[in-house]
Design a protein around this nucleic acid. Structure first.
Lengths: 336, 336
DNA sequence: CCTTGACACGAAAACGTTTTCGTTGTAATG
DNA sequence: CATTACAACGAAAACGTTTTCGTGTCAAGG
């Protein structure tokens, strides 16, 4: 049916071992035969069977991507990462394999490892500590994307959440705000913690005392931004600015303010995080902290590959600088 | 290193063939030994090596996804499809593999086929007829997503572009518009053609003569919606409503109108297509034609699987109904 | 002339499965 | 009792590679 190394071998009267060596650039094959073999391979349009190669070499050429499906509503975020990651992976002759279900089950992860389905894994946002434990025991190279994991042996790529939150809070303060609402998402651990710390530090640096009443805990649900905003606005003394957890929440917060007849930013300022397109197409446009997601996706793959080549390498992590983008939703002098 | 069928075999003193049969549910193994084998497999946490299985069975358990990278700026569109497709694939024990570069090169496609990298392929939007030819010659099951391909043997899943365009145009007409701007995208072939035909039919049914001056050809570029809108507005007799090719173009068209100080929909109405989140978060919200992308993604996988199980099956295609969603960008009686 | 070495090549094992086929032992049938 | 049938198992081939190791040839060196 399909063309194998044997076909080349037979037509040329050369052993399969020599054919294989010629194709793989081994030194112990003469120039003449090498050329005849390559020529014949071209003629037959031969391409090595991937399964056979994987079995023999012990490498699959596949990188697994663990994506938590509940987060799919921030699809633009994920898409941007994947776009970068896929590019780098494919440049190195690898391909990305998607795992979207049962990702939180350590059993499934272990199956992937034991079955040698992939050479490495990138975990987007998975908050499951169990998963990390499994990967380490199974000796599977992996990298965590999006969150800081201060655990020996764990590599990660993350945005500078602290600095982003600090810059954004500071900006709000310079706009005259002293009552700044803040949203957390405890399930995201360090992501939430770092932003919280940056927020608090900016307040402290401006001699504004931190008010725990202005902190709202949010969960993963479709309308969480709308709900959070309403909680802020229902307060006895509402904040004059709200720092939401990500752009889509800010969009919904805008809606909530609008539904109450409040003007943004005149009566309440709203800011987001991530810098996705959503933040750019609302009216008013949303002030946000932009993450270099595509770049981070590329870089994550690079780090993962160094790990795959030598899993004894020490873990490496990179924190990426983020950029505060000031737009109308927090700025009183309107323009653009 | 890793645990194989041999380990089970040795510990139990049972041949590997019997172990394999027990694990695969063959009938010719007694209940007693089957249970001992399964128990031991559990104890050792054995999982069959995927490469070996693929090699032997001739199936990889992988479905390739061909994604044209230049289209990545409509990432939400792709993400929605993938989300549905991945779900169905994984339910059947398969995983999605991403191919984002060199997808337009027939050589690369042929390599994927000859190397038996995947069991089937889903092509999102690829306008390359060469690719289809290669897949047919290589006898690789595939399905085209998003566009109608009236070619014997080609399965596809597509939205009802004709009906969507008809409904949308009709809606604009009932709002009193007679000069309705239309955008095409020739590179997308039937997608563009069908919408064009639906648009023209709706005009004809309302006894409005078709005016070719109101048709603007667009290309794949970042600001194409903004440019197209400006071309409309620069006309001697501009349209009073514009039917853009997709939501993001409508968003940009909104910007263009805003930049010229035009109110939407009072001075010019704007509509989109696809029904992505972008259409929902602008002010005014954008009238659009919603595609059931997630469902279509799931269904595409189902059809592909029937093809994989028996590639002699006749090609099947499904045209999905779309839904006109009327919002403020085209409606004079403002509410919501 | 003998040894050494480099060079070019092939035989064969190995990777971990699945599956065909043959071989037992035992029970049922005539 | 002889035959048949069946149940339960194992040997071995096969999938398509890669890689180790051995072998033969030939030239250079002593």
């Amino acid at each position: 049916m399909s063309i194998t190394i044997k076909d080349i071998s037979k037509r040329l009267g050369i052993s399969v071992s020599t054919v294989s060596k010629a194709l793989n650039g081994y030194p112990d094959v003469s120039e003449g035969t090498r050329e005849r073999i390559l020529e014949m391979a071209r003629e037959l349009d031969y391409h090595p069977n991937l399964a056979a190669q994987s079995l023999r070499r012990g490498r699959t050429g596949k990188i697994g991507l663990l994506i938590n499906n509940p987060l799919s509503f921030i699809s633009e975020y994920i898409a941007e990462i994947i776009s970068g990651a896929a590019l780098t992976a494919e440049q190195q002759g690898n391909n990305l394999v998607l795992y979207t279900t049962a990702v939180t089950h350590p059993d499934e992860i272990r199956r992937i490892c034991r079955a040698r389905e992939v050479d490495g894994l990138m975990i987007i946002f998975s908050p499951e500590p169990d998963v990390v434990g499994v990967l380490e025991r199974e000796n599977m190279p992996f990298i965590v994307f999006g969150r800081r994991v201060e655990q020996p042996g764990v590599s990660f790529v993350a945005p500078d959440n602290w600095a982003g939150a600090y810059a954004l809070t500071q900006h709000l303060i310079t706009q005259g705000h002293t009552r700044i609402g803040f949203t957390t998402r405890p399930i995201l651990g360090t992501v939430s913690d770092d932003r919280f710390a940056g927020y608090q530090k900016a307040l402290a640096d401006a001699d504004i005392s931190f008010n725990p009443d202005l902190v709202v805990e949010t969960t993963i649900e479709e309308r969480s931004g709308y709900k959070a905003m309403n909680r802020f606005l229902d307060m006895a003394e509402p904040p004059t600015a709200v720092f939401t957890f990500y752009d889509l929440m800010a969009v919904q917060a805008l809606d909530a303010a609008h539904d109450r007849g409040l003007r943004v930013p005149e009566e309440i300022a709203v800011a987001g995080f991530d810098g996705l397109r959503s933040s750019l197409i609302t009216k008013p446009r949303i002030t946000t902290v932009q993450q270099p997601l595509n770049l981070m996706g590329r870089r994550a793959m690079e780090l993962l590959f160094t790990r795959i080549k030598d899993n004894a390498q020490p873990s490496v992590s990179e924190i990426f600088p983020v950029e505060l983008i000031i737009r109308q939703s927090t700025r009183y002098q309107l323009e653009n």
